[in-house]
Structures are given as structure tokens and as C-alpha cells.
């Protein structure tokens, strides 16, 4: 008898809490180096959404290599939003499982990328090998750490930035191919993801220079001390646009369309942009960009669309099986 009443009370409480302020759960499927950014952002968004609608939001995060995360979504991971390293991985959600419409990138401002980043070098304190630009990376005796572009989104940006540098300098695709071939000859370890690569450079003391996401380089400095590492900014790099998108099929099933939309849109708000800047992503919003202007150095940035004709084409030429990256490793 007593047990029954207890059960009833428990049931009443449980249903009561559902009927009143709702607790909504979102899953953000993201790539490796955004852990700190989204931990910050999720707290801010939960506060904003609570004030706006009264609902409690719990955002769960999932991180991993960008390609692997896309594959998890394709294989059925119930992620409400995808915030990945490159547009090609969100394109794959359309190509392989029709999880969202083909024109997903047009649904939010700035090609659906609320923040950008670029590719820089992380070197050891004092820069003992005097690395200043990309051409220093192909010199004999310089050991370079970068992840495998076939498995890591960040590494694809690294590779394309190097290619763009050589092409701008020498003017031809052949020269660029020779340049990246020489560069990868200097790579002793190809990790599968950006975090693994940073660990190899920072903790295992492998390599003279790590090619890295700008935010990842700043984070390594913050985490391991500016007395151990330095950031070197090359003369030219690539504008990395990590896009965000709602996974339509999942939000429709879970009924979270509105929250998911709000979650991504708030990234563009003043607070969202400020959090991005604080976590070393370059904000899009001009006022936030000015606030963090002294953090992010100015350099010549090329875009993937202008330089490589978009991700689909870059992927096919460079990273598909038998593509340029495979060719430079063929003996």
C-alpha cells in the first residue's frame, strides 16, 4: 500500500515536471577542436532559451574527427545539429542519407558558417628551425606534423593551404603538387585527427612544426604555456569555414526543429559571436571582429571556392582514392 502511494507520488512529480517547464534535449554533433567552444556556448544558450521560452535546455555534445562524425549521423546517430569542420562532410549527409536538403548551406547567413578559422603553424619556443612561411616546411631536416587528410577535416584544410601557397608562388598545379609531395616527405607521423596530431607534437615532442587550426594552436598555447610554443603565421593561408546545419530528418522526428533553429541562429548573435572569439574562432560579426582584432593576425586568405572550385571538386581531385594525395605517396 505504502509502496503504491510512493509510486503514485513519483509519477505525479515526473509528469508534473513534464507538463510545466519542458526539458528539451539537443545533441550537437561536432568535430574535434570545438569542445571548449561549445561547452561555453551551450551554457549561454541554455540561459538565453530559458529566459525566452521558460524551457530548460540540455545540450549534449559529441566530438570526433569530422568525417567520422558525419558517418555516425548517416548511420543513425540522432544528432539535432551538425557543426562540422567542412561543408563536404555536411554535403555527405545529403548525398548518403538525405538527412537534410541539398541547399542546406543557403539557410543561414555567411554560407552557414557563423565563425571562421584559418591554418597556422605551431613551433617550439624560440623557433629553433627559423620557420617563417610554407617554404620553410619543405626544407630537408624539418619535421612537420599534420594529420592524415583522408581521415581528418582539419588536415584537408592544411593540405589545401599548402597547395594554394605553392600555386600562388609558382603559378602551376604541377609545381604545387611537387611542393605538397616534398612537404609530406617531411611528415613522420600521420595521425587520424587534429587533436591526435596536436598531442603528438606537444606531448611526444615529435616534429619541429605542427600545421594546425588557428584555434587549436591558441588552445595549445593556453593549455601548455606560451613559454613552450609559439604561433607562426604564414604569408598566405586558407579561409576555413566550418559550417553548421540542422539535421532535418532528426529534428522532425524528435520535434525539436524550433530549438535547433534557435540554437544555430544564436551563434550569430552578439553573445554567440563573442563566445566564438573568446574561444579563438574568428567571429563574422564586425563588432565582435573588431573586439578580437588584436588576437587574430591579418594575413592573405584564399577561399576554397575561388581556389579549388568548392569542396566537391577539391575532394574529388585531391583526396578521393587515386587522387593527388594518393599519388604523392605512390612509389
Amino acid at each position: 500500500m505504502k509502496f503504491k502511494t510512493l509510486l503514485l507520488v513519483a509519477l505525479a512529480i515526473a509528469t508534473g515536471s513534464v507538463a510545466g517547464a519542458k526539458t528539451i534535449e539537443l545533441l550537437n554533433v561536432s568535430y574535434d577542436p570545438t569542445r571548449e567552444l561549445y561547452t561555453d556556448y551551450n551554457a549561454a544558450f541554455a540561459k538565453y532559451w530559458k529566459a525566452k521560452t521558460g524551457d530548460d535546455i540540455v545540450v549534449k555534445q559529441s566530438h570526433g574527427g569530422s568525417g567520422k562524425q558525419a558517418r555516425s549521423l548517416i548511420d543513425g546517430l540522432q544528432g539535432d545539429v551538425a557543426t562540422l569542420a567542412l561543408a563536404a562532410d555536411i554535403d555527405a549527409l545529403y548525398d548518403n542519407a538525405k538527412l537534410l536538403p541539398a541547399d542546406w548551406q543557403k539557410r543561414l547567413p555567411n554560407n552557414s558558417t557563423p565563425y571562421t578559422s584559418t591554418i597556422v603553424f605551431l613551433v617550439r619556443k624560440g623557433n629553433p628551425k627559423a620557420i617563417k612561411d610554407w617554404n620553410d616546411l619543405v626544407k630537408p631536416g624539418v619535421s612537420v606534423v599534420t594529420p592524415n587528410p583522408k581521415t581528418s577535416g582539419g588536415a584537408r584544410w592544411n593540405y589545401l593551404a599548402a597547395w594554394a601557397y605553392a600555386k600562388h608562388r609558382d603559378g602551376s598545379d604541377d609545381a604545387a603538387k611537387k611542393f605538397v609531395a616534398a612537404l609530406f616527405k617531411n611528415v613522420p607521423v600521420l595521425d587520424s585527427g587534429a587533436r591526435g596530431s596536436t598531442t603528438t607534437f606537444v606531448q611526444r615532442a615529435i616534429g619541429d612544426v605542427a600545421i594546425s587550426w588557428e584555434n587549436e594552436a591558441f588552445l595549445a598555447l593556453k593549455e601548455f604555456g606560451a613559454d613552450k610554443f609559439e604561433i607562426v603565421v604564414p604569408s598566405l593561408s586558407i579561409l576555413a569555414e566550418p559550417p553548421v546545419a540542422i539535421v532535418d530528418k532528426v529534428v522532425k522526428k524528435k520535434g525539436t526543429t524550433e530549438v535547433a533553429k534557435g540554437y544555430l541562429e544564436y551563434l550569430y548573435s552578439d553573445e554567440g559571436q563573442d563566445i566564438a572569439g573568446r574561444n579563438f574562432y574568428r567571429p563574422r560579426n564586425p563588432s565582435a571582429a573588431t573586439k578580437y582584432a588584436n588576437v587574430f593576425p591579418q594575413l592573405q586568405l584564399v577561399t576554397i571556392d575561388a581556389e579549388f572550385g568548392g569542396w566537391t571538386s577539391a575532394q574529388k581531385t585531391h583526396f578521393a582514392d587515386g587522387g593527388v594525395f594518393d599519388q604523392i605517396y605512390a612509389k
Binding site: G67, K68, A92, L190, S192, D321, Y329
Partner: peptide, 27 residues
């Protein structure tokens, strides 16, 4: 193995890594 192999294509790349690499490319 992947943490300690260096994973150089055609040199220190094990077959299970090839499989994972192909999966990463949605192949």
C-alpha cells in the same frame, strides 16, 4: 596500433586503418 604506428601510407599503414580510411570517405 594507430597511436604508435606513424600511419605512413604504403609504409606503416595497417589494413584495419585502410578500412577506417575508406569508411571516412563514405566508401
Amino acid at each position: 596500433v594507430v597511436f604508435i604506428a606513424g600511419n605512413q601510407p604504403a609504409h606503416s599503414e595497417i589494413t584495419p586503418l585502410i578500412i577506417i580510411t575508406k569508411l571516412e570517405q563514405y566508401d
